[in-house]
Design a protein around this nucleic acid. Sequence first.
DNA 1: TCGGCCGATACCCTCCGGGCATGGGCGAAA
DNA 2: TTTCGCCCATGCCCGGAGGGTATCGGCCGA
Lengths: 297, 297
Amino acid sequence: MGETLETRELAHFLVVADELHFGRAATRLGIAQPALSRTIQKLERRLGVVLFDRGSRGVTLTPPGRVLAGEARHALAAVQAAARRTRRAATATPHLVLAMKAGGDFGLLPPILAAYAHEPESLPVRVVFAAERAQLLRDGRADAALLFDPADDLHGFRTETLRRDGRMAVLPASHPLAHRASLRLADLPAGYLPGPGDEPSRRPAEDAAGRRPAPATVAELLQLVALGQTIALVPRSLPAAMPLRPDLTGVPVLDAAPVTLVLAWPAHTTSPARAALARPVATVRTGGEAAGCPATA
Amino acid sequence: MGETLETRELAHFLVVADELHFGRAATRLGIAQPALSRTIQKLERRLGVVLFDRGSRGVTLTPPGRVLAGEARHALAAVQAAARRTRRAATATPHLVLAMKAGGDFGLLPPILAAYAHEPESLPVRVVFAAERAQLLRDGRADAALLFDPADDLHGFRTETLRRDGRMAVLPASHPLAHRASLRLADLPAGYLPGPGDEPSRRPAEDAAGRRPAPATVAELLQLVALGQTIALVPRSLPAAMPLRPDLTGVPVLDAAPVTLVLAWPAHTTSPARAALARPVATVRTGGEAAGCPATA
DNA sequence: TCGGCCGATACCCTCCGGGCATGGGCGAAA
DNA sequence: TTTCGCCCATGCCCGGAGGGTATCGGCCGA
């Protein structure tokens, strides 16, 4: 009764929880449907819990099933992270992987990396660009990431604050609001898209309804603004890393919640090379008011 | 090459990493030694990494092996937490488990629980006493815990500050320093034991050398003080929950690092009942100066 | 040099995971 | 109401992974 679950069981369960259809889930897993049914049944018996309601009108997650879906995702990410980090620890050419979005450093990264290179334990740093930086960090594909505090999910990470920043609206230079010195949220027309760092963690390539997803990069977002399709809310420091094209204008939004740019890393890692990466941040940080106040808020 | 590791492999690996001896590890696992050897070999082949140095003078972890040991512990804790939380989500009588050390609430818990009981989503709360509260939280045996900030490992937890507090030395009333109004760390004789919340996370029942471990509870610690075997450094609010016996005296230590008592819970849980537990904390909190500043420091 | 410790190898067996065929419940269509 | 069809469960078989016993081989200490 108390044996530990196997990762295969959790992975198979997650696919069923995702598809809510044993047949399709089995296809996705490359196995036959009966085998999958039995795996789930055994999992349910082992847990002593019914995970799915099998109505003839399809399959539904029970409340405990919903709990397991969330927990299983975390557990599997932890297992994958174990494999990835172990492999990378054995690499002949050790290095750190830093995940960020293009322009997502407000121009602060170059001096940090320069200072880091002088640290005694420093390693070469490879920068990767990705929207799902938090996920990369969780499953071991990255050693550190530049994240935004209220927008990204910082749970389980340790962080060092780089900069706390207000927001501004980016609009076409021809927009009626473009000449204003400042704005309030109420001034903005309804339906503007979120700014960088507000993206949802899961971003399907395409909606079930076929709608296009929100833009994944700041460049895409600003492109949409230039096309007059939206208004963007971005950190005021953004132009330091990515100047606005001339046909766009930035106007501070006074009452938009501020964003905090942080350097984040998995809480339990112990690499001295990674620890040294946090050190130069303190010297580079500008305008930081929450020094030493870690995240996980 | 890229398949995910199985929990059984990780568990077996951890025992070998702990024992550094295949034979003993196999016995602990209840299997024969050859099977264990093969499991580890397969794990190494799958990862493409050598995890152990097999010298004839015993077995040693390689550096990547040490990485995997840390990662595997976290991954397995996550898997076990998944099972525990799922089972408890299916319980007929839902409730929350709150882990603490006896006296570890500074007397603040009763009003919190009283206020919590009036929250709309509240559940019955079962309090369990344990030294390894953080571990209980990590593997799903508890839903929340009262932890001490610099002492406990708060990585991966969300927290709500209950109280920040200086420390005092507890000494026998007959001790030469007992009449002082205040002390500094330099005044204390070398070799005093840590106070509550300074305990290491792993506490073997007995040393390899056979020495007794540090006391696990405050009551044990104060007992040792009364016996003149040590001096204790405890939070100044401790007597609010656990009055000092008359033959003991508390003297503030001005330059000892303050302790922060926090309510902690796993970062990614989503139970509304658990979320409601954090709410009364804000109303009960006294002397808190770091409100809203979360942990993970 | 020899015996003992300890991990690796060889070989066998059992059982678990998976495949195929089929049963059975339930809703929708006729 | 009957029938068709979708979809999950069940029955049965097979291959392989995991485990057990016996044994080898390297290394150290006596």
